[in-house]
Design a protein around this nucleic acid. Structure first.
Length: 318
DNA sequence: GCGACAG
DNA sequence: ATCTTGTCGC
């Protein structure tokens, strides 16, 4: 049942949202806080999380929020949580977090509750971090609310603070040679807002990596690169694939998901699918090269006080 | 009216 | 974000 579209937020709500972003932005830590982040091989890093929200075709309210946790450096899925949710906020550029973050925080809470040992040491988020209109994108937002290191990974350049996806920019991208090559995105104030990264050898479209929380830009880029079997880093890619898959199955079968197909909060098999033929229209058809195997330390998931307040509920009630 | 517009 | 399969190329 395709439900009615979520109303565009009144100016007053946008104002409240901006204030909330400004308040939380003061809590962002844009440097490395964990030992593994400083290690050249990320020794000590064992679990990387990925989140995403997929939508239902003719329905502007229903969506599937997913959280996956992958082992590092093997990049195999060790945890998956897909859940249908009802969106309460519309998509407004610059305010993506108010639409998606509440459900992602919920997923993290469920993980913490059910499988605390699987809580990831860092999250890769589909969207931007400090590369944002007010320096506080969804990756920062989720990071501050969960108190976890977060990296923003966007597929398109958010043209902000003087940054433009013009001929100049495209030319710089064309000059990126090997996978791993990158160049900085410098805002009008001279600040480095993020890095343009050629995440895969055979991908002409780059990724836009920015700091979300508790990680340096250098480590964020290196980690993103280390999670790429294809153009999109595996944690985000798996979260996307599985959430869309969940929607497909949910729509195909009336009523709640069949008991045998309930994937929520299930530990998945670390199997590698045989057919990975296509990924991006780019043709990065080469799966191989999992990051080299590493000895391991023990990672400690920093758990702490996360904030949790949205002005949307209040704004709607008012 | 025109251009932008993370997901 | 979503509408969409097979197909050409490295």
């Amino acid at each position: 049942m395709a439900r009615e579209a979520v109303a565009w937020p009144p100016e007053e709500t946008l104002s409240l949202w901006k204030r909330e972003q400004a308040r939380l932005k003061a809590l962002v830590v844009d440097r490395d806080t964990e030992a593994w982040q400083r290690d050249a091989a990320f020794s000590g890093l064992q679990r990387v999380g990925g989140v995403d929200v997929s939508f239902v075709k003719g329905d502007s309210v229903s969506a599937c929020a997913s959280l996956v946790v992958l082992s590092y450096p093997e990049l195999e899925v060790v945890y998956e949580d897909c859940r249908m949710v009802s969106l309460t906020a519309p998509y407004v550029s610059g305010f993506l977090a108010f639409r998606e973050v509440p459900f992602l925080v919920d997923a993290m809470r469920r993980l913490q509750e059910k499988e605390p040992r699987l809580v990831p040491q860092v999250l890769l988020v589909d969207g931007n971090g400090v590369l944002h209109h007010r320096g506080f994108g969804v990756a920062c937002h989720l990071g501050v609310l969960t108190d976890l290191p977060c990296v923003g990974v966007a597929k398109k350049l958010l043209q902000v603070d003087g940054l433009e996806n013009d001929a100049q920019h495209k030319e710089k991208i064309r000059l990126l040679r090997a996978g791993g090559d990158s160049f900085p995105l410098i805002g009008g104030s001279g600040t480095v807002l993020g890095m343009v990264l050629k995440s895969h050898e055979h991908s002409s479209k780059p990724l836009y990596v920015s700091v979300g929380h508790k990680i340096s830009l250098e480590a964020a880029v290196r980690l993103t690169r280390g999670c790429c079997r294809f153009r999109i880093p595996e944690p985000v890619r798996q979260a996307d694939i599985r959430s869309r898959d969940y929607i497909r199955r949910t729509l195909g079968v009336p009523g709640p998901p069949a008991p045998g197909q309930e994937r929520s909060q299930k530990v998945q098999r670390p199997k590698v699918c045989p057919q990975e033929g296509s990924e991006e229209p780019e043709g990065e058809g080469r799966p191989p090269r999992g990051p080299q195997l590493r000895p391991q330390d023990n990672g400690k998931a920093s758990s702490g006080s996360g904030e949790l307040s949205w002005t949307w509920q209040r704004a709607q009630a008012a």
